[in-house]
Amino acid sequence: MDYIAGYIGRKASSATNHISNLFAFTYRIFVLIFQKPEAGRALVRRISLEQVYFTCVQALPIIIPIALVFGSMLIIQFTKVSGQYDLGKTMVMLIVRELGPVITAFLVILRSATAVAIEISYMNLFHEIDAIEMAGIDPMRVVCLPRLIGITSAILCLFIVFDLVAIIGGYLIIWIFTYIPMGDFITQIGKAITATDIAVGIIKAIFFGIAITVTCLKHGFSVKRLITDIPVGTSKAAVECFFYCLVINVIISILFYM
């Protein structure tokens, strides 16, 4: 019994320590946003834009078909019960409020978060971070800050793309390829969507972006000595990111809709 209690205590203590470290790390990066040194702005801007390109633009060919599949699939299912539920409201509830942010975050974790974790681990392991420091440059400013800005902006953009494609694209696919009656679907969506839905989407995207970036960077920087630590760290980062996103999603939904 003592052994089990000790094990649980150690795990809880380690988890609390890890979460505290993540918050401290987030704080460190956030402070950099509000500091405005003259040096490095152009470089930070370029790396941020590159990150937006890698995370958002390059993900479009993947997220658009997925959004179309989800949108049309949900419309088909909900038109069957349209007598019982408001189709527009149901779509807004499912896609804009819940599925959109989560699927977008999931795709970003699969594509970019793992890539960032590996990249940072590699940079750390092979002394590239030391090389940046030897140039007199703060790695937090040229490595962490642009990735935070880039990934968060990319998630926000992808989330908007996902919602639009899932709703409008899904509607068009059903309208073109089937004879399923959908009534005045777009008007229903227009009536159902509120400013809160849009604000919640933006808030979720921002929090997901922060959680994903910080978790991946933290795990990346934790790799110090062995190359075999890179896959372990990456896998931990991906799982943690997904878990944190789900938790954040639930908390924000409870705060705004309950």
């Binding site: 040096a39 490095g40 702005r41 152009a42 470089l43 140039a135 007199g136 440059i137 040229v142």
Partner: peptide, 10 residues
């Protein structure tokens, strides 16, 4: 790299 940063120009 160092000049990109400290001269703030790319």
């Amino acid at each position: 790299f160092t000049r990109y940063y400290f001269d703030d120009s790319l």
